[in-house]
Nucleic acid binder design. Structure first.
Lengths: 200, 200
DNA sequence: GATCCTATCTTTTCACTGTCAAGATTTGGA
DNA sequence: TCCAAATCTTGACAGTGAAAAGATAGGATC
């Protein structure tokens, strides 16, 4: 099934990988379904059998992105003290990690209307990502009853600061902080994120 | 020069307006130079004489956006107490106003690589926007000497929270805050922005 | 094992797009 | 008046996404 058979074997996965590679190289602006097909070594109409159309392919890729997005946050949190505040900051750093390392995917997920956000699988992946954020904020405040307005504000603030930093950094607009690296960078970013966390 | 002459009169301006209208209707994903030309009532090749290509048109539109962007911030600031902290919060609300009322343009300015950000006019408009932000932050802290690291951090934090709120709200992801309107909305957003301002 | 059904992939076709080159029209100044 | 430059149109070309129809392979059933 590898070298030259008519049937590819796992074209769906191969197309997803080709699409992501294409996305990181040319950006969303230069993205082309036919180029993805060429990169995967199949005819230009082959993708239609696994993903209905371009939007379908990008929707599937979007879901992959959201899962990796949560994974990177958890990866940061796994090496961080367990108190709620530290965990929340770590999640924010993971948010920024994702945008840095997967800029094209990040743009697709948060800056495009091409993917179908109503699609079941994609919506589930997005929901998981949101719940992970909300759960983190909820843990850092007394967790009583239904989410009140104060908690919604805390969630919004936490989300907004992480997202704002991630978006501006990944698009190369925060030259001052963007030029920092390593622990110093983490320290500065942590300080900024901490400003927005619910007060203890 | 109005009804049917061969020469349009002010096609450049008409194309800019048509492009913005097209952008808000179809979004950046469905944008087409030929549709813009049709909307302006000229042939498909006419735009090339005023803007080299699609990127050129979007670059010019981008510059228009940055100027309106600053104008909306100043508009908020004009009806706000003059203390530095209130002014900074007002600028943030203007930032969000712009994203809300000019979502397509906002996406073009901050979420696309199509415009040429090295273009002189566009770069100047962007620089003005950045300087307006930096000046505001500088005024809210003791203004001595060259910008030190702490001020760069304050600028980054202020920018990030405004940008994060604007981007998430304009893309309809912050349902909780997004559903608020009027003074209540301003109050909540102001509270969130205030968290990120330099401490007095 | 032979047969047939279905999933998978290719080929062909069509309308649309951006860009370029060449021609037509108008304007404004010499 | 006349000509050069600016402005706009027409025509052409390669590339694109999507749909339809044909080709091939895998797997189930008998």
């Amino acid at each position: 099934m590898s070298t030259k058979s008519y049937h590819h074997g796992d074209l769906r996965q191969a197309l997803l990988e080709a699409a992501e590679a294409e996305l990181t190289e040319t950006g969303l602006e230069g993205f082309s379904l036919r180029k993805v097909a060429r990169r995967a070594g199949v005819s230009h109409a082959a993708p239609a059998h696994h993903f209905k159309d371009t939007a379908g392919l990008l929707t599937a890729l979007c879901a992959v992105g959201y899962r990796r997005f949560v994974a990177l946050q958890k990866q940061r949190q796994a090496v961080t003290p367990l108190d709620a505040r530290s965990q929340q900051i770590a999640a924010g750093l993971g948010y920024i990690d994702f945008a840095d390392e997967n800029t094209a995917l990040f743009r697709l997920m948060f800056g495009s209307r091409l993917p179908d956000f109503e699609n079941a699988d994609n919506a589930a992946a997005m929901s998981d990502a949101y719940l992970h954020l909300a759960k983190g904020v909820g843990a850092s405040v007394e967790d009583n009853g239904p989410p009140d307005q104060q908690m919604m504000i805390d969630i919004s603030a936490t989300w907004a600061i992480a997202h704002g930093l991630a978006d501006l950094l990944s698009s190369g607009r925060l030259h001052m902080v963007g030029s920092l690296t390593g622990p110093k960078r983490d320290e500065v970013l942590s300080g900024i994120i901490a400003r927005c966390l619910p007060e203890r």
